[in-house]
Design a protein around this nucleic acid. Structure first.
Lengths: 225, 225
DNA sequence: TGTACATCAGTGAACGCGCGTTCACTGATGTAC
DNA sequence: TGTACATCAGTGAACGCGCGTTCACTGATGTAC
């Protein structure tokens, strides 16, 4: 028996990581739909069939990339939101800024997880779990803030039930009104990010820094932060 | 000389339309990145090279599909928003509902124009022009409403300039504050639609009817309608 | 109205390419005794 | 510590497929006189 875990196990972990790195580079070059096992192998100087020792299919490779992307953006949001002691509004603004920075630095990974679904690809529990990190980070700020929401119109029973169900599933004590608000803020935020990244703001609000700052400010108001 | 426009011209127009119809079906089946000239030709029972008499390249075909999609969704929004006499708020709500209906009935066309950009494809003036129909329809409602916006914080000079520039380019008399609000509403609306369609709301707010209704209501408030 | 020529639509074959995946193989690494 | 066997990583060739695009061609439609 070789050293801790053995030479093979270590080599395997390293090569798996290298394949993912190469795949990420490919992703940035040609986009998810055109990502190919052969191109990844080529970039690593290995024969395409060798990659199959590490990922059983192209879809498995895609899944790994999606999970990685979600964890990466989730980590960014968590770190920014977790500035303990700071007032919730500041943490929310910081999280939004972190999300935008991540999106701009990883446009193809952003498109992979928040853009159109890759045709023919089906996510599974792994991707769903990873994908909830960002909303959870945002909800963390909301929960700590205990926003007043009583002055708004009552939620419909169905919506209230969905909000409760979601809070329960996530094991969070967020009142339905705040939950619904949070989802609206979450979708509004990513709507703006998507439109900026995907070019819908071209020639109008294109360097969207100011628009984004303004929107985040208004969203913080909406959350009662 | 044959009848008006001639047999050839008419046949040409008809076949062009048929190719587009087939391409739309293909789009719905395999998504934009996998759309292929050969598959379209196959569906029409013609040889693939024949399609090149009608569209010079695959990208031209894609462009036509994109323009068509934008016009289709634009038309839907315009019709709903143009219910003359009705109060602006009602028209806004109707336009939002029409957009959602269109998105649900044409998920792949939605993804084509509002999702991740198709890798390697570059839009041009035709797609940009067609793409502005929806925002213009929404702005029409806002303009007719003359919302009060004085009570909000002042816009930054840069943002004000962008808003003015956009209004000028579109030849609209919308004050900067309303313009910025409108863009936020626009992005929030499509953020929600995208997340619903792309599956981000799965298992939480998935039949998003109630969430959508609530969000639209709040957005109407934001617009001062 | 009839004829000669030009334009166009669709065919079929081909070019050159890349893809995902499988498979039998070689040689190195690990395991059990 | 040494040896026999099992596991694993990477190779190279192959299968079967689909793609965008070009090109020389045939036959039908349109145009000019």
């Amino acid at each position: 028996m070789a050293a801790i875990r053995g030479v093979r196990a270590r080599a395997r972990a390293e090569l798996t990581a290298e394949i993912l790195r190469a795949a990420r580079r490919q992703l940035a070059e040609v986009g998810a739909p055109a990502l190919s096992v052969r191109a990844v192998a080529r970039e690593l100087g290995m024969v395409s069939s060798a990659v199959y020792r590490y990922f059983a299919t192209r879809d498995e490779l895609l899944t790994a990339l999606i999970v990685e992307a979600y964890e990466s953006v989730g980590r960014a949001a968590e770190q920014a939101a977790a500035a303990d002691g700071r007032p919730p509004r500041e943490r929310f603004v910081a999280a939004c800024a972190a999300l935008r920075r991540w999106a701009q630095e990883h446009p193809h990974e952003y498109a992979l997880v928040y853009g159109s679904p890759v045709p023919g690809y089906q996510g599974d529990d792994r991707t769903t779990a990873a994908g909830s990190r960002v909303p959870l980070a945002l909800l963390g700020v909301v929960r700590d803030a205990r926003p007043r929401t009583g002055d708004e119109a009552a939620l419909s029973p169905e919506l209230r039930a969905q909000a409760r169900g979601t809070a329960d599933a996530l094991d969070l004590e967020v009142p339905p009104e705040a939950m619904v608000r949070a989802v609206q803020v979450w979708t509004a935020l990513f709507g703006l990010l998507s439109f900026e990244l995907f070019g819908q703001l071209a020639r109008t609000f294109d360097p969207a820094d100011e628009l984004f700052a303004r929107a985040v400010d208004d969203l913080a108001d909406d959350l009662g932060l």
